[in-house]
């Protein structure tokens, strides 16, 4: 049998550290111990931190949920989605309208927001994905803008002012209205999102996305329906965004078109690309960067987007796989 060797040795200190970490966590016991520690820490975190830090952490979990959804589309299926905030808006407004105008219970609104996202996803995904994958990018960009215009101009969405009076969710008799409540709610959502992503990634469907990403024609020749498989990714990913939007609406109790701008779509995308497309830890890392950098470096305020633009360019040019490294490859020795 051919010898197995790791990728060529590197002198980059970052890579050496990462490789050491990979090797360390090769041992499943260490890995599970680490995960248990991390989860344990995050569970007690609200008891040892200020409301302000809890707010930031809640925002981080929220980013993880939404960006993992976007990652299904961009990372797994290799499709660029530039209107993700629109799907997020679809979810938020579905919940917002049903809750504030019709008094529906929060939990009941979630299936509606998923259905709305699926319909919207089919309406723009089907005509576009039938053609070329990269048309999706610009069509979603247009859809993002159209959605924002629509919610600005309709009465039912409250126009430019938006909706107020969205009801707080009630969970086993407790009305969720403290920041720590939302901290736990989004924490649980993030964990669910990670598990769902992990299971999808390592499944028949996840592999099909990878095959299409690698070689569309070969995938078709292997019996994979390229259009429907992509459409699945697009719709599942968009539904993640809609669910994120529903919870966002419940947390804020008021929403307006300003929360669903193109910039937000770009920030979600940033998180996915910076950390590493298609890699769950990468997306978590990317979300941390996007949420925490502006908090840590407050001075960058107006320059934030310019800096992120350059970061995106540099990542694409020099490290397209993102900051999080790929698993070391096994190759045959000649």
């Amino acid at each position: 049998m051919a010898e197995i060797k790791k990728k060529a040795k590197t002198t980059n200190p970052f890579e050496i550290i990462v490789e050491a970490l990979f090797n360390f966590f090769e041992n499943k016991v260490y890995l599970y111990a680490f995960i248990a520690l991390a989860v344990g820490f995050l569970i007690i975190f609200p008891n040892v931190s200020s409301r302000f830090t809890q707010e930031i952490m809640t925002n981080l979990f929220f980013y993880v949920v939404v960006c993992l959804g976007l990652n299904i589309i961009v990372g797994y299926a290799g499709l660029l989605h530039l209107g993700y905030a629109a799907f997020f808006a679809v979810g938020a407004y579905t919940t917002g309208i049903l809750s504030s105008r019709m008094g529906m219970d929060f939990w009941l609104t979630i299936p509606f927001s998923v259905v709305a996202a699926v319909i919207a996803g089919l309406a723009i995904g089907f005509p576009t994905l039938r053609l070329r994958g990269d048309y999706l990018a610009i069509v979603t960009l247009g859809f993002g803008e159209i959605t924002r215009l629509t919610i600005r101009n309709l009465d039912i969405t409250g126009g430019a002012i938006g909706l107020i009076g969205i009801q707080r969710p009630v969970f086993f008799g407790i009305t969720l209205n403290q920041i720590s409540h939302f901290y736990y709610m989004f924490f649980i959502l993030a964990i669910i999102a990670i598990i769902v992503s992990y299971r999808l990634e390592n499944s028949r469907m996840g592999r099909a996305w990878a095959y299409i990403r690698e070689d569309e024609d070969a995938a078709a020749a292997m019996g994979i329906n390229v259009v429907t498989t992509r459409l699945y990714a697009f719709i599942i990913g968009s539904s993640f965004g809609a669910v994120g939007g529903s919870f966002f609406a419940a947390k804020m109790t008021a929403i307006s078109p300003d929360s669903f701008m193109f910039i937000h779509s770009v920030m979600f995308l940033m998180a996915v690309v910076l950390g590493g497309m298609g890699k769950i830890p990468g997306v978590v890392l990317g979300s941390m960067l996007v949420v925490l950098i502006p908090e840590v470096a407050r001075g960058i305020g107006p320059y934030r987007l310019l800096i992120f633009g350059f970061l995106l360019l540099i990542i694409m040019l020099y490290r397209p796989q993102g900051i999080w490294p790929d698993k070391p490859a096994i190759s045959a020795k000649e």
Partner: peptide, 30 residues
């Protein structure tokens, strides 16, 4: 026209796609 970045086994598993049918829910619920 192999799926270059994937393992040999994963490459061959692609052939089984059209003979199997697990979808979203069954996958998520394992």
């Amino acid at each position: 026209r192999l799926f270059k970045g994937m393992s040999v086994l994963e490459n061959v598993m692609s052939g089984m796609h059209c003979r199997t049918n697990a979808a979203f829910l069954t996958t998520v619920l394992r």
